[in-house]
């Protein structure tokens, strides 16, 4: 069902906005080939739609997607996985790749904010961020090894909160799953995560001035064999109205 919805959203965007993007001039060769794109776990819902839109724009191309926590993805590239493009949920994770010259010029392509996910009915009555300090509250966060975890720590520091989590999950979707099941009273996740789980979870908004921003970065992997196509995909994600429109629809913020 979600897949169908994705397809529908993608088609709507391509049809609706295609007019603004006349196809490349006849002289240039038609882009073709297959790209392997590694993307952060929090992009699990939105990237398939963007990939569909890209493949519709350039019918001779194919995008293969690989999702995991940002640091796992970076580790895979370091270990030599055949990846052409990598998109992470923070700059620091992709920085490791730049330092070891495995990744070329990472660029920001979208932003995301944190929010407090609570089970339906909000049984622990969380209404503001300082409620997270309550004794005995079952709060879940990501481990600091993954971007959503370091962002959560930043959030607590910024608001001088003294909180103790009961679990440090290894990706943001695991935190969300345990909130949905009602085993956690609250979890620190991205705005886009609760949007993907509408009707199964509620959320308590964190005011903009108290919030922490996650900046998503995308880059071509240095030794890709598909340099031109990889660059085209990176540009498509960053600049096309189609891709940016899809990201807005999924709750991601403008990159600048």
């Amino acid at each position: 069902m979600t897949k169908m919805l994705h397809g529908f959203v993608a088609i709507a965007f391509v049809v609706g906005l295609g007019a603004f993007f006349p196809s490349a001039s006849g002289a240039a060769p038609k882009p073709s080939g297959t790209l392997t794109v590694s993307a952060a776990a929090s992009l699990t819902d939105v990237f398939p739609v963007i990939a569909d839109a890209f493949e519709k724009r350039y019918p001779d191309t194919e995008i293969k997607l690989n999702f995991a926590g940002s640091s796992t993805l970076m580790n895979q590239v370091i270990a030599g996985a055949p990846v052409d493009v990598i998109a992470t949920a923070s700059k620091s994770t992709i920085q490791i790749g730049i330092d070891s010259e495995l990744v070329a010029r990472p660029l920001r392509f979208t932003k995301n904010f944190l929010t407090i996910a609570v089970p339906l009915g909000n049984p622990a009555n969380i209404s503001k961020i300082s409620d997270l300090q309550r004794d005995g509250l079952l709060l879940g966060v990501c481990d600091t090894a993954v971007p959503c975890g370091s962002a959560a720590v930043e959030l607590f520091t910024k608001n001088t909160l003294d909180v103790t989590a009961v679990t440090r999950e290894l990706d943001v979707r695991s935190v969300l799953a345990k909130v949905i099941s009602g085993d956690l009273d609250a979890g620190i996740v991205y705005v886009t995560d609760v949007k993907s789980a509408e009707n199964r979870v509620e959320f308590v908004q964190i005011p903009f001035r108290d919030n922490v921003v996650a900046t998503y970065h995308i880059s071509m992997v240095a030794d890709t064999r598909e340099q031109q196509l990889a660059q085209r995909f990176v540009n498509f994600v960053r600049f096309s109205t189609t891709s940016q429109g899809i990201m807005r629809a999924f709750g991601f913020a403008k990159p600048w």
Binding site: T72, D143, V166, T167, R168, K178
Partner: peptide, 19 residues
């Protein structure tokens, strides 16, 4: 879940460290 000293056993510590 995964929390040092409470639920983070060795295999979980290995996986967490891998990140």
């Amino acid at each position: 879940g995964n929390f040092p000293g409470v639920t983070q056993t060795m295999p979980l510590a290995v996986y967490t460290a891998l990140e």
